[in-house]
Design a protein around this nucleic acid. Structure first.
Length: 507
RNA sequence: GGCCCCUUCGUCUAGUGGUUAGGACGAAGCCCUCUCAAGGCUUAAACACGGGUUCGAGUCCCGUAGGGGUCACCA
């Protein structure tokens, strides 16, 4: 256990491609643990595999954190990102950030000397040794073991050569202690017991190209950077005993471990492209709120419990209530219907001006709004009409497009009310237009009162008159509520469209 | 195959020996209603299986089955 220091967690992805939301759920758990405890959270890029490195990856990872609003107390700075060949013109995440007492660099390829030094320390202390078998030789050894139906385990005794010149190309392997057992006190899973005799080959900790492997690099960094809780995907559980041995070989205290269960697709299998392995950006672009995504991700595997049945949480509430001992042990499945519902809930809770700001970029992209600033006020007024019927931000366009641009005069058959003749529809429109034009105040309450009175005057049912008006002013059969819609639209536009409709009906 | 993890409605889950097994999403129905929604009410829907332990098991133990992870000079 790391004692006497604050909770410090980290997210340490390998920049080898685009991270899907499942990875960010693990990151969110780590972030929540840190914030709940008033501790720190930082980002470390584990790029010790140069062959799989994808230069677009660091940027995607950092911008995802930015969009989600998960702040970092440390991470790759501008210079580090430049060295990683991330776009020159990109400002980078940490230029305005601070490194609050957490030692960097935060990119593993910039820490090679540290790993080398630590690997040599283990050789000197007898916990590791040099080896230089070629991959062909190793393959042959595996085949031979296979043929004898026994498991291939590489140990110091198995190596072909032991007199290795430190100046020649070679790897350093960790010498696994195969006696006794290792117990991992996992914060989520409880005690997990491993028989050390079952452990696999002595792992390479320093590759012949001078790069460390995960096992060495992550343990060294977590120690040097003061990580108190190692929160990671459950796929790491099998190598946890090895990690404990490495930490012990250095004489360090080990951190709390928490292995987070996987997230599966709706086929029960590992998340794939087809089953929803999307990036954070894809959700953003599809019109999801970060609040909803975060809420949804947090509840995949975590629940408040204790009889509390709250479903909708703000980030602050999650920070206040999250704890690892409430994280379930079993894998969860993405169910996007629930995300949609959460999105609705968070949309409804957003203040109108804020919601309008979120909707605006989508309307601009969809060509509904051209002059955003000029039309912002109208947009804010529309929010009360919209927020109850929007599932995603992309839904807004269909409800508001006719407020911001002219509409073609609807076809005549659309201008005839239910169970009404053409002349009757025309009459009703003409009379109602007259009433609306004479209305002293063109606000929602006045409009409603006047139109309901019109139903009586004309002996029409609300459904008849109102659908007629709706179609005439919007050109649509599905719109926000009529009275509020007319008020926001304004008398001038309403009269213009009603008169056109009357003309289209021949009169 | 060895080792490890997991198993409550379709999905996310509550439950820590005694419950009519609760909630949410989704589904169906009803109500409300100017369309679409929202909202309200109601219904269907689960303890993987088999043995124990116990007066009593979703809860404890042991098996079985199923799912997943891992066994690289990848992370």
């Amino acid at each position: 256990m790391v004692e006497g220091i604050v909770t410090r967690t980290r997210f340490a992805p390998s920049p080898t491609g685009f991270l899907h939301v499942g990875a960010f759920r693990t990151a969110l758990f780590s972030w929540l643990v840190a914030r709940h405890d008033g501790g720190q959270f930082f980002l470390r890029l584990e790029d010790t595999d140069q062959e799989r490195y994808v230069p677009a990856s660091p940027r995607q990872i950092i911008e995802s954190f930015q969009w989600l609003g998960l702040d970092l107390d440390g991470g790759p700075d501008h210079d580090a990102l430049r060295r990683m060949k991330v776009d020159e013109d990109w400002p980078g995440a940490m230029d305005n950030g601070e490194f609050r007492g957490i030692p960097g660099p935060f990119v593993q390829s910039h820490r090679l000397d540290i790993y080398k030094r630590h690997a040599e320390m283990l050789v000197a202390s007898g916990h590791a040794y040099r080896a230089n078998e070629t991959s062909e030789e190793l393959e042959a050894m595996r085949k031979a073991a296979d043929a004898e139906k026994r498991m291939f385990v590489f140990t110091a005794d198995a190596r072909l050569r032991s007199d290795i010149d430190p100046a020649s190309p070679h790897v350093i392997r960790f010498k696994i202690d195969r006696r006794g057992q290792t117990v991992i006190n996992d914060l989520i899973l409880g005690d997990v017991v491993f028989e050390n005799a079952n452990l696999t080959s002595d792992p390479v900790i320093l590759k012949s190209d001078g790069f460390a492997t995960y096992h060495l690099a992550a343990m060294v960094d977590d120690h040097l950077q003061g990580v108190s809780h190692v929160i990671r995907a459950q796929e790491w559980l099998a190598s946890a005993p090895l990690h404990v041995q490495i930490i012990r070989a250095f004489g360090w205290q080990w951190p709390h471990f928490a292995h987070v269960p996987a997230v599966n697709g709706n086929d029960g299998k590992k998340l794939s492209k087809r089953t929803g392995a999307k990036s954070v950006f894809e959700f953003r672009d599809e019109g999801y709120l970060k609040e909803a995504l975060l809420n949804f991700l947090a509840m995949l595997g975590w629940a408040v419990g204790d009889g509390d049945e709250q479903n909708v949480f703000t980030l602050d509430e999650l920070v206040a209530r999250f704890s690892l001992d409430r994280v379930g042990k079993s894998p969860a499945v993405f169910e996007y219907a629930k995300l949609d519902w959460l999105n609705e809930q968070h949309i409804k809770r957003l203040p109108d001006p804020e919601l309008a700001e979120r909707v605006l970029p989508f309307l601009e992209k969809q060509g509904v709004i051209v002059q955003g600033d000029a039309q912002r006020d109208t947009l804010v007024k529309l929010m009360p009409l919209l927020k109850e019927r929007m599932k995603k931000l992309t839904d807004a366009a269909a409800f508001v497009d006719f407020f911001f641009g002219d509409i073609p005069t609807p076809p005549a058959d659309m201008l005839i009310g239910p169970k009404m003749e053409q002349h009757l529809s025309r009459h009703a429109l003409r009379e109602t237009a007259g009433v609306l034009n004479a209305l002293p105040a063109f606000d929602e309450a006045s409009i409603e009162a006047a139109l309901r009175a019109q139903c009586d005057t004309l002996s029409l049912k609300p459904a008849q008159l109102f659908s007629l008006l709706r179609n005439a002013v919007s050109g649509k059969t599905v719109t926000p509520p009529l009275f509020g819609m007319l008020a926001v639209m304004g008398r001038e536009t309403v009269m213009l469209r009603l008169n056109r409709a009357i003309a289209a009906l021949g009169g």
